[in-house]
Amino acid sequence: MFRNITIGQYVPGDSVVHKLDPRIKIIITFIFIIAIFFINKLSGYLFAVFYLWLIIAISKIPFSYILKGLRPVIVILLLTVSLNIFFTPGGTILYTVGPLRITTGGLRLALFMGLRLIFLIIGTSLLTLTTSPISLTDGIEHILKPFSSIGVPAHELAMMMTIALRFIPTLIEEAEKIMKAQMARGADFESGNIVKRAKGLVPLLVPLFISAFRRADELAIAMESRCYKGGQNRTRMKQLKTQPRDYAALAVTLIIVMLIVWNRSWTW
């Protein structure tokens, strides 16, 4: 039941995209997301398509993985598109159904919103597809570090993510063990309707939570006895170093952004 849960959606590989400095990748993703909102013509999306295609081609991520990332947001996507179609005033009226009107302005906005969402999701899932959760955590910690002086808990966030990553497999293993133990005593996790099945999970969740709290307690003592005293005066073994390829990736991204901005002044 739990075996096929993967943490994040990382697809291991050794392409240039995979090897990029996680900090640069996160920054690039942000730049790309902002750039998406600058696009005001359909032709502008050509650059975004080209950019994403370039990343997918270099990283050799199968396209089906990227489509899989879109599946959970289909409902939101459809909702956004239909709301925009029906409730945007302006433009010529094409069709009227009771109080609802479909206008050219609405269609245009719906199309842009839909495209924006799709590109946003593909862009961010490319980040998580090509970056392991561990280096992602490292990257986030390093990016947030300058802001820790204004109260951003950079180190704490990273430590929480690290511990979560470390304990997810342990807890999954434990859940399986508890499940087997409860099944041996006649617990039924598989039959009945949703309510019944949810109730059936209680004998699994209660022991799992109790053990998780006990683990947390022991871990805290172990960390303390290993001289953990929070983020101050702490050093890191792994230092992130930017390489020429990181600057190249940043440069390509900035060129795409400039093209997108330039595209705003086009007439078509």
Binding site: L165, R166, T170, R215, L219, A222, R226, Y228, K229, R234
Partner: peptide
């Protein structure tokens, strides 16, 4: 101090990073 349950005293998600945890806390150069 080494404890009884190895699962509850390993902090990091990779072996070498866990071993580095103590020295990192002590502020030793990378």
């Amino acid at each position: 101090l080494v404890f009884q349950n190895p699962d509850n005293q390993i902090v990091a998600a990779i072996v070498e990073e866990d071993v580095a945890f103590g020295p990192e806390n002590l502020g030793i150069p990378p």
